[in-house]
Amino acid sequence: MNIVRRVAATAILIAQKDLRLEWRNRARLFSVALFGLVVLLLLSLAFGPNSDDLQRAAPGSLVVALLFSSILSLSESFRLEREDSALEGLALVPIEPMGLFYGKFLANTLFLLLLAGILIPVTVVLFVVEADARVLLQLTGFWALAAVGLAAPGTLYAAMTSRLRSQDVLLPLLLFPLEVPALIALVKSFGFILTGDPMEQLVSWTKLLIAFDLIYVALCGVLFPFILDEGS
């Protein structure tokens, strides 16, 4: 089996395992979704009741909800591997470490995508946004691009900080600066989708998000084996 097939096979096995475990213990999904909902509710109360103000605040609020929920979700993703030192068990198996990364990344991305199904409709309702099926689809598409951009470095940093007691503090500190360009692109894109795009700038922001995603996904996959090596 060549290296690409080995990485892909490992990634699929790890992602299946993670998603199965998440499904069995749905605490992470409930807590993260609830957190996102509370963020959206508080922001809608802060910006309301004027509907123009609410609509203007909707893109930023949705990004804030995604960002905070993703931090909570990502920091939990390696807790599974700390049970009975399971990560050490995986390190002993002759697998491609990149496969382990891409498996965890895939599971985290799918998890964040699942959140879109909850948080986007709630935003539409709370922020009085006029959204037809096309708008909802566009929002979900950009959420997916953002989820990839958040999950790649998030998985890397979650692995790096998973053995530290101060993970909850360190993870956002490390992740936020790295995510700034992707978050700006996402806020702008959501804004253009919800309030109109007369200058047709959405395409350039899309390209920027895709470029960030490609860089993050490739770079984090290459760096992950060094994180996994705790033998120093």
Partner: peptide, 12 residues
């Protein structure tokens, strides 16, 4: 390595 840790996932 067969460790005294079992490397099992509780819910699998």
């Amino acid at each position: 390595l067969v460790s005294h840790r079992t490397y099992l996932y509780e819910q699998l």
